[in-house]
Amino acid sequence: MSRVRIVPTGAAAEYFGGSGEEFDAEAGNLFQLVEVLDARAPGFGDAAGVQLVFAVNGEVTEDWTAPLPERAEVLIVTKISGG
């Protein structure tokens, strides 16, 4: 388990009060984090990975099995489409 800083932006902020306020959560990897956040904001789990992506310490992370580093910043951003 690592304690990580959650930074929800854009559509992600909607799930956590809308103000974009940062908060801490505990999880070992992104699968666990999504579960934790879904419990806190029901529906978040469905949006994660579809509408939202995670950047762990600034790196967009698609492999949700990778261990989360202690004190990592997890930025949640809206997926962007290319042409």
């Binding site: 469905d46 949006a47 579809v50 509408q51 997926k79 962007i80 489409s81 290319g82």
Partner: peptide, 10 residues
């Protein structure tokens, strides 16, 4: 209502 991945966005 269901969000789906289209291209790279939803």
């Amino acid at each position: 209502s269901l969000m789906v991945t289209m291209g790279e966005s939803a």
